[in-house]
């Protein structure tokens, strides 16, 4: 809009209650639309501008820093109860840009774009020299650990056969040499004890996800696998508009949305593009 029309923004303080409220709505939106990785929590509001919006309302333009929590995106635990991933666990931060519309006292996210980045190995080493560091999710040791853990889980589990859905996080422990892997599984229409051909097992229409943590330790003459899984209640799928950007299999999730053109009235229905960055 030409400046001659007098459209100007205001800049409340970043900790102003109205800005904090809009930021929380933005972070909730981010978490509701994540399909991979972990929920993020608000850490700091970097910048805030408030633009008038015609014919009604205001648009909050926010720059926000987030931190990864230990709750997976599919974990129903409320964000307030999700612990922040500590530096010693190799923390991950997110940098987000949001546009939030305030109209009729309702806050609606118009645009969301986030990039997440793991802390540097050097910073983790400053905290402790033997902290396990993140390693790529496609590392053969990681994939092997997840598959071995899932096989062990299915062998000891009464009920549905579970399939691997996502490897979410992986770290290497130097001594004793072990691989820590967190992964997501989902129930199929097969019974675990009766499965002969896993490729014939299909995920249930009403998805039932589980979140597993495993430690695979190298031993003399073999390996030892410890695995614990939490199976969540069945969840309805969050409708996801078709993405414009090709999905990749990188480990850290991000939400990115193109800004839709502002309609003349009424809250817009934002489209979501899910991408992944490291």
């Amino acid at each position: 809009v030409p400046h001659s029309l007098g459209l100007v923004y205001r800049q409340p303080a970043c900790d102003d209650p109205e800005i904090e409220k809009a930021a929380q709505v933005a972070v909730d939106y981010l978490n509701q639309h994540l399909l991979h990785g972990y929920k993020h929590t608000l850490n700091q509001i970097d910048k805030a501008k408030v633009w008038p919006r015609r014919p009604f309302g205001e648009v909050y333009e926010l720059e926000i820093d987030t931190l990864e929590t230990t709750c997976h995106a599919r974990d129903p635990t409320p964000l307030a109860n999700c612990p922040v991933r500590q530096v010693s666990q190799h923390a991950v931060e997110g940098d987000c840009d949001f546009h939030v519309l305030k109209q009729d006292n309702q806050l609606t996210v118009l645009h969301a774009k986030c990039h997440s980045t793991p802390d540097s190995a050097e910073d983790v080493r400053k905290v402790c020299s033997d902290c396990p560091l993140l390693i790529p999710l496609n590392d053969t040791r990681v994939v092997h650990a997840a598959q071995a853990a899932l096989a062990a889980f299915n062998a000891r589990h009464n009920g549905s056969y579970f399939k691997l859905v996502e490897i979410s996080r992986a770290q290497l422990v130097p001594l004793p040499e072990s691989t820590l892997v967190e992964f997501v599984v989902a129930a199929t229409d097969c019974v675990a004890k009766e499965v002969i051909e896993p490729t014939n097992c299909n995920l249930l229409a009403e998805k039932q996800y589980g979140f597993c943590k495993t430690t695979l330790t190298e031993k003399l003459g073999g390996e030892e696998v410890a695995v614990t899984c939490t199976v969540f209640h069945t969840q309805p799928e969050v409708p996801q508009p078709q993405p414009d950007v090709a999905k990749t299999a990188d480990p850290i999730p991000a939400v990115e949305q193109p800004a839709p053109a502002l309609p003349s009235a009424g809250p817009p229905a934002p489209s979501v593009t899910l991408g992944h960055v490291m």
Binding site: V8, A13, C14, N43, Q44, I45, D46, D65, L67
Partner: peptide, 27 residues
């Protein structure tokens, strides 16, 4: 036309409007 409500008024305390407080820790 841009306002800076966090800036100090005459005799008032200087408040830095942005960035806001760090809730956990900075990387």
């Amino acid at each position: 036309k841009v306002t800076h409500p966090g800036a100090a008024g005459p005799g008032g305390p200087l408040v830095r409007p942005c960035p806001g407080k760090v809730r956990h820790f900075k990387l």
